[in-house]
């Protein structure tokens, strides 16, 4: 188990190193002079020279690469051109918005998907099962940002129940008010992501329910509730855990897009501001942090999977 954990950890670090190298290399391909692109052609030469130095463009690429890697390893992602402050600080601040959205959406998706998936599997082929399949198909096909737009039209424009845009100045100092601004985004993302999850729970449980030990449990005369809740669910949870990990990555991406629908100043809008300002240290930082989350989650899921299922070999 320990060898496996260390090997898996090593792979994750190697992956991160490769990803950060990719993120670094992109800048080498900027056509023309990046400083001229950022400041415009008729920029003050002194200002241009200072920016060139700040960005490290007056140093050879290999040296820049190593200082970038050293920065990534120590959590220093450089300085934003647009804001003039540390990229890490900007990202941390937007994470206080993006992470709650992601976590709340994941909770909502699970709360919807697990009971619905179980019900659909227990009555496989029935009307509820059909409805759940339809829900899953729709969830996969409907673009989440469009669903967000429709929610704005329904809940904010027509019914006037919830705010459609922005995040209060006071932020989390007034948590209830802050949550009101997150309600529609979380509903949008959570509903969309619960679709696939429902299908996974259903499929996984159906597979387990067809196994011999479940037949034995039924043969012993156990009630269907005990068979499902006590015997089948634990084993059916395994594939679902894997999917939850992958879901988290998808959720993160969905959150970046849906934030934009509701005008929330999270990671997504930070990256988009960066692109408009050609602030590539900022964009690189956001992309790298998101990639780190994805790698870390894959790692956690792999380790958790081995822990939950003793049959998994660590070969």
């Amino acid at each position: 188990m320990w060898t496996y954990t260390f090997r898996r950890l090593g792979l994750a670090i190697l992956t991160l190193w490769l990803a950060s190298t990719l993120v670094f290399m992109v800048v080498l391909f900027i056509p023309g002079d990046p400083v001229a692109t950022i400041l415009g052609m008729d920029a003050n030469p002194d200002v241009a020279e200072k920016l060139r130095h700040d960005l490290g463009l007056d140093r050879p690429p290999l040296e820049r690469y190593f200082s970038w890697l050293a920065g990534v390893a120590t959590g220093d992602l450089g300085t934003s051109i647009r804001y003039g402050i540390s990229v890490g600080g900007l990202i941390l601040k937007s994470l206080t918005l993006t992470l709650p959205i992601v976590l709340l959406s994941l909770m909502l998706a699970t709360v919807i998907a697990v009971p619905l998936g179980i019900l659909a599997a227990r009555r496989a082929g029935g009307a509820l099962d059909f409805a759940a399949s339809l829900f899953a198909l729709l969830g996969l096909a409907l673009p989440s940002f469009w669903v967000g737009l429709m929610f704005i039209y329904l809940f904010a424009v027509n019914l006037g129940w919830l705010p459609s845009n922005g995040f209060p100045q006071k932020g989390w100092a007034d948590p209830l008010n802050a949550l009101k601004y997150l309600a529609l985004p979380v509903l949008t993302i959570g509903l969309a992501r619960s679709a696939l999850l429902t299908r996974m729970v259903r499929g996984s449980l159906l597979e387990v329910l067809s196994q011999d030990y479940v037949r034995t449990a039924r043969g012993k005369g156990l009630s269907e509730r005990v068979v499902v809740n006590k015997h089948a669910l634990k084993n059916a949870a395994l594939p679902v855990v894997t999917v939850l990990g992958l879901e988290f990555a998808q959720l993160l991406i969905a959150a970046v897009v849906v934030e934009q629908v509701f005008g929330l100043p999270g990671l997504g809008s930070l990256a988009l501001t960066g692109i408009q300002a050609r602030d590539y240290p900022l964009v690189q930082g956001v992309v790298l942090v998101l990639a780190m989350f994805i790698v870390a989650l894959n790692l956690v899921v792999d380790l958790l999977y081995g822990y939950l299922d003793p049959r998994v070999s660590y070969g």
Partner: peptide
């Protein structure tokens, strides 16, 4: 395989953000 593993960490949106920062959207 290692390269693919690294690419998995960079979904389309992230790659698009990077490319847009460099070449413009």
């Amino acid at each position: 395989m290692l390269g693919l593993e690294a690419l998995y960490a960079l979904p389309a949106l992230l790659l698009a953000l990077l490319l847009a920062a460099v070449f413009g959207p």
